[in-house]
């Protein structure tokens, strides 16, 4: 049960956005700009993979599932690729540059000061630009916020994979600024989901 009185029809961060629209606006604008709006070089799928990976490291079920689903829908509906990145970025079929960026993201997750000049030099050697390094650090840092926000207030985080897939498809297509759909929780409970 959530730590505070949140609307029941919305999972994860969406219940918090409904509870406090004043802070939802900048939080949503940030994720839209970081992950969905056009980027000079990183695809939306690559950026979503960074967000998903950090959410996995923070063990945030809702964020990992929803951003994994969004990443999948950006990446030709390739669920296996998302699974491989989460299992081990080193052996996943992604570019060496993205592997180096995910290494930086993992350092950020354990603390800002963990990122070394060597990590940055390695990413550069694999072709990463300054903007890519910057945005990787910010995405990783931002998910250390979103994950703590979602778990720190003990929001409802469903287990239903089909629900995340449906929500992920919507977000990949529409971005983050459109209204979420309500989830019928009576149905969810009666179907054992």
């Amino acid at each position: 049960m959530p730590h505070i009185n949140l609307p029941q029809e919305f999972p994860g961060i969406r219940s918090l956005f409904m509870f406090r629209p004043e802070t939802a606006a900048p939080l949503n604008a940030l994720v839209q700009t970081m992950l969905h709006n056009p980027h000079p070089t990183l695809s939306a799928g690559e950026r979503e993979l960074i967000a998903t990976y950090v959410s996995r490291l923070n063990v945030c079920k809702y964020c990992c599932n929803i951003h994994g689903a969004i990443a999948q829908h950006h990446l030709d509906n390739n669920a296996e690729l998302v699974r491989q990145v989460l299992a081990n970025p080193e052996t996943a079929p992604i570019s060496d540059k993205l592997k180096a960026l995910l290494k930086i993201a993992a350092k950020v997750q354990s603390g800002g000061k963990k990122v070394t000049e060597g990590d940055v030099a390695f990413a550069r050697a694999e072709g990463a630009t300054d903007i890519e390094i910057h945005d990787t650090v910010l995405i990783a840092a931002a998910f250390c916020m979103y994950n703590r926000y979602v778990d720190g207030l003990a929001t409802w985080q469903p287990d239903d994979a089909a629900l995340y897939d449906k929500m992920g498809e919507q977000r990949a297509r529409e971005g983050y600024l459109t209204a979420p759909f309500k989830v019928n929780r009576t149905e969810e409970v009666s179907s054992g989901g």
Binding site: V115, V137, A141, M145
Partner: peptide
């Protein structure tokens, strides 16, 4: 939570 972001952003770069 937000300062866990701001702090990492400032130190991570």
């Amino acid at each position: 939570a937000a300062f866990c972001m701001f702090n990492r952003y400032v130190d991570g770069l």
